[in-house]
Amino acid sequence: MPGKTPIGIFDSGIGGLTVFRSIAEQLPAYDYIYLGDNSRAPYGNRSFNTIHQYTWECVQWLFQQGCPLIILACNTASAKALRTIQQKDMQGLDPSKRVLGVIRPTAEVIGKYSKTKEIGVLGTVGTVKSESYLIEIQKFFPELKVYQQACPLWVPLVESGEYEKPGSDYFIQEYLGELMAQSTNIDTILLACTHYPLLQDKIKAHLPQHVNVIAQGDIVAKSLVDYLQRHPELEQQLSKTGTREFYTTTDDTADFDHHASRFFSAPVKSSFVSVTEFSCK
């Protein structure tokens, strides 16, 4: 994208497109590059060091494409790589560059959805083990009780396209049952993985009607709008011709496009980028 300075959006797969869709709806004039690291997904069960390495490689690639601002539209990467990237890896780089995650914007508002002050968090093994949501929510809503549940099979179900089949209901019901068994007072459930919104209807079908199910897309998009208003020096760097480019690290771009179009609620045409093009310095 010569001469353009797009917003970069990264996810380990296609889940981040749910966040990208919301961002593009609220900020349609901007240019965007989306990168899905599908060939190495899912990230959720990988080690801290591996998640950090993969995420930093992808962030550097997006910087090389001219992105001064990158959104980690991945809870696992936000939980296990963002802080190290911000505090260590970016030292010595252009100080105007920014990398933001999805956990803090969500933690800032999630308590407003609950009347009982007890919420559940559904996420990958990596996100849950990091306890990032427990830490961040405590800062803004110390009165909240937060219960976590890892759902290790949900991302593979979504990435493979199996989530719509009847067999997926078993695994959805299983993890929800384990979460709700922790407290009968949970009235709000956060989908702390950007893949999970495609399961939202099935999730709701296995929960009492009074339980709110909260996806992150609109929350993150509104937070980004506010962030750009508060940082005009960064906002003015961003090009605005309304272009959107999609890249995936899987060479099966047709399969990516098929599934991604459902996430993005619009046709997606992606290009392949090999992980051998990434460098982790």
Rank of each mutant, 00 (worst) to 15 (best):
K4F: 08
I14S: 13
T18E: 08
F20L: 15
A24C: 15
E25N: 15
P28E: 08
A29R: 14
Y30F: 13
D31N: 13
I33N: 01
I33G: 06
L35I: 08
S39M: 12
R40K: 15
A41M: 06
S47R: 08
N49K: 08
T50Q: 06
I51V: 14
H52P: 02
E57A: 10
G66W: 13
C67G: 01
A73P: 08
N75E: 02
T76S: 04
K80Q: 11
A81H: 01
L82P: 07
L82W: 06
Q86W: 10
L93N: 07
P95K: 13
K97E: 00
V99M: 07
G101R: 04
R104I: 10
P105M: 10
P105T: 11
E108G: 10
E108T: 11
V109W: 06
Y113W: 12
Y113R: 13
T116N: 15
T116H: 13
V121Y: 00
V125G: 03
V128F: 03
S130R: 03
Y133L: 07
Y133T: 06
Y133A: 09
L134A: 08
K145T: 04
Y147G: 00
Y147I: 01
Q148R: 05
A150Y: 09
A150K: 09
C151F: 10
W154A: 03
V158F: 08
E159F: 07
G161Q: 04
G161M: 05
G161N: 10
G161L: 04
E162L: 11
E162M: 15
E162T: 05
P166C: 07
G167C: 11
S168V: 05
S168W: 12
Y170Q: 14
I172Q: 04
Q173I: 03
E174Q: 11
E178G: 03
L179F: 09
L179C: 09
T184G: 07
N185H: 13
D187G: 09
I189L: 14
L190H: 05
L191Y: 11
C193Q: 04
C193K: 00
T194P: 06
H195V: 08
Y196P: 07
Y196R: 02
Y196V: 06
A205C: 04
L207P: 03
H210F: 10
V211G: 11
V211W: 14
V213C: 13
D218C: 01
S223H: 10
D226R: 14
Q229D: 12
H231N: 15
T241K: 03
E245F: 08
T248L: 07
T249K: 00
T249A: 05
T250V: 03
D251W: 07
D252I: 06
S265K: 14
S265M: 14
P267K: 12
K269W: 02
K269G: 10
V273I: 15
V273R: 06
V273C: 05
S274E: 07
S274T: 07
S274Y: 11
K281V: 09
